[in-house]
Design a protein around this nucleic acid. Structure first.
Lengths: 112, 112
DNA sequence: TTCATTATTCGATTGTTATCGAACAATAGA
DNA sequence: TCTATTGTTCGATAACAATCGAATAATGAA
C-alpha cells in the first residue's frame, strides 16, 4: 500500500501555495473540488491528459493544498481547508472567491 | 521620457498576481513597500544584484501588483492596493498578513 | 561638459515546469 | 485468472524563469 507524502501543517509555505495556485489548470481543479466536494482525479473535467492531471494533483498535494486519499484505484481529492485557514487565514477563500468572480481563462498566465 | 506599461485594472489576472507573489524575493519586496510606503528600487534591501531587482520590479509591475513612477533616475514603487482590492477583495491583505505572521525565508543562493 | 547615481537591457547560465504519449502498477470485478 | 479502470512514472520536448556581470541609458549635480 502506497503512502503519499503530505506536508505537515506547519511546513506549508506561503510561496509554495501561491505558486501551486498560480497555474490556471490547478486553479480550476481546486475550484471544482471546492464546488463539488471530494472528487477523484478522473471526476474533474479538465482539458489535459491524465498524466498531466496526475502531475498537477501531485503539485497541489506537495504544496499542502490538497489531501489525497487512496480508495481502490482512485485518488480522492479534498481541500485542506482547515489547515490552510489556520495557517493563512482568509487566503484560500479570497483566492477562490476572486476566481469565481472573475472568469479566469484556463489557458496560461502569460496570456494577452 | 520613458513610458512604463501598467495593465489596466480589469486586465489584472488572478493567476498572474499569484505567480508574481509566489517568489520569496518578490514577496519580500512587496512586504517592504507595504510596510514603509513608496520606495525606490535601491531603497529596498534585497539580497540580489540590481539587475535582478529590476527584473523583479518589472514582473510585479506587469502583473499589476506595483505601480512604478519615474522620478529623476529613480523608480518609485507603490502597491496598487485599491485596484487589487476592488478586483480581488481581501486577497492582498490575506497574503501579506500571512507573510508577516509566518516568517517566510528569502532563500537565495547568493549573499550580498 | 564631466561625473556620479540609479536603474534597464543584454547575453549567458542554470535550473524548472507544463505538456504529451507510452509503459507500468494497483485494484476491483467477472 | 483475466480484464477493465484508474492513476503514476518515465522520457522527451519546448518554454520559461532566476540569477549574474557587463554594457548602456537617463538624470542631476558640480
Amino acid at each position: 500500500m502506497k503512502n503519499l507524502f503530505h506536508p505537515d501543517k506547519d511546513d506549508i509555505h506561503l510561496s509554495s501555495v501561491l505558486y501551486a495556485l498560480s497555474d490556471p489548470v490547478r486553479l480550476f481543479i481546486v475550484s471544482e473540488i471546492r464546488r463539488l466536494g471530494e472528487r477523484s482525479c478522473g471526476d474533474i473535467d479538465v482539458p489535459v491528459v491524465k498524466s498531466t492531471m496526475s502531475h498537477h494533483a501531485r503539485t497541489l498535494r506537495e504544496a499542502g493544498v490538497l489531501n489525497v486519499r487512496i480508495q481502490g484505484t482512485q485518488r480522492m481529492l479534498t481541500l485542506r481547508e482547515d489547515d490552510l485557514e489556520s495557517r493563512f487565514p482568509g487566503l484560500l477563500l479570497s483566492i477562490l472567491d476572486a476566481y469565481d468572480r472573475n472568469g479566469e481563462p484556463i489557458s496560461s498566465h502569460t496570456s494577452e
